[in-house]
């Protein structure tokens, strides 16, 4: 063995040891961080406006599971889509003085005065998918990205021209406002893409049925093939009804776009024949978990950013077979099909 060889061997060895040391240090550090994340002895209030959709249910579960995993106690409150009930629950929750409150979705106009009261009562407030100045942290998908990406996919599929049917019933829900505004921003660069006026209104409950009849009516009104090219909604439950309506009317050229990634819609996008063209799939369970980790960090005295983004994935006809799979597996694991 030459001297040179042995020196380089030595350098390698030192580097290896250093790397190992660094790795173990990293390990120790992350282990310490993980150890720090604990909610032992803490009571965390969780308020959600309703859990009748896949997204809501998964976020709600993610939050509760993580609170339990970190050793805390969850006071979990589902308002069953009744605003009055959610307000009453929040009011009682304030009186219960939990160590923190995680609030998920809802009408900001209705919630804001009560979220302010939570802060007045000195209870740390965290939100999921609800951007409000009263929250310490809002954990959500990057809705600016999602909104632009799904709109760009739609414009690309349309070849830069045509007519879009837009569901805009929930502009008062913050995430829908962002996604809608981003869609409009993208369309600003494509003057040949027109939104059909008046816009459609998606509703809760009976979202799928209402969307089905809305789209059927619009197709009847514009009977020539190709006169309507796309349907956009800020979530994917109207997309289900819209897709079924296009299929039933034999108007496969009407492509549908939505956001959330309910298993049913991912399956539609995976189906090459379905008019469902793309869906931006979020990770609601992860979002819920991440929010609780933020709570634990905050209660441990660590700094928490005002918002945390959990990655979302654009599932379209080209990539659906690969990108859709993990989402479907996650849904199956959670017992939701």
């Amino acid at each position: 063995m030459s001297n040179k060889q042995s020196r380089s061997h030595g350098i390698l060895k030192t580097a290896a040891i250093a790397l190992a040391a660094a790795c173990s240090l990293q390990f120790v550090l992350s282990a310490a961080q993980a150890q720090e994340l604990s909610l032992k002895g803490k009571r965390i209030g969780v308020s959600i406006v309703g859990t009748d959709h896949y997204w809501d249910l998964m976020a709600f579960r993610g939050i509760q599971d993580e609170i339990k995993a970190l050793g805390g106690e969850a006071i979990a409150l589902d308002a069953g889509r009744k605003d009055q009930q959610q307000i009453a629950q929040l009011q009682t929750l304030i009186a219960q003085k939990p160590d923190a409150i995680v609030e998920v979705l809802g009408n900001l106009e209705v919630l804001n005065p009560w979220l302010a009261k939570i802060r007045e009562a000195d209870i740390p407030l965290f939100t999921v998918d609800t951007a409000t100045p009263h929250a310490i942290n809002n954990t959500t998908s990057n809705n600016y990205n999602i909104g632009a990406e799904i709109a760009l996919q739609m414009v690309a599929d349309m070849g830069g021209k045509g007519n879009v049917l837009v569901f805009n019933g929930f502009y008062s829900v913050p995430v829908c406002k962002i996604r809608y505004d981003q869609m409009k921003y993208v369309l600003g660069s494509f003057p040949d893409v027109k939104i059909v006026e008046p816009e459609l209104r998606d509703v809760i409950p009976n979202t799928v049925q209402a969307a089905y009849s809305n789209i059927t009516d619009m197709l009847t009104k514009s009977p020539e093939k190709g006169s309507l090219n796309a349907v956009w909604a800020c979530w994917d439950v109207p997309q289900i009804g819209a897709t079924q309506a296009a299929e039933a009317a034999g108007r496969q050229e009407l492509k549908t776009y939505g956001i959330d990634g309910s298993p049913e819609v991912i399956k539609m996008v995976m189906d090459a024949k379905s008019p469902a063209a793309a869906v931006a799939a979020q990770q609601p369970y992860e979002i819920g978990k991440t929010s609780v980790q933020n709570v634990a960090k905050y209660l441990a005295g660590q700094k928490v950013p005002p918002f945390t983004f959990v990655p979302a994935v654009l599932i379209n006809k080209e990539n659906a077979a690969v990108t859709g799979k993990p989402f479907l597996e996650a849904a199956e694991k959670a017992g939701v099909k």
């Binding site: 009744k82 605003d83 009055q84 009408n107 106009e109 209705v110 509703v203």
Partner: peptide, 16 residues
């Protein structure tokens, strides 16, 4: 009273 409590009129009152 409902509008005062919710700072708004909201759909879904029929649920009551």
């Amino acid at each position: 009273l409902a509008v005062s409590r919710l700072s708004a009129s909201t759909p879904g009152s029929g649920e009551m």
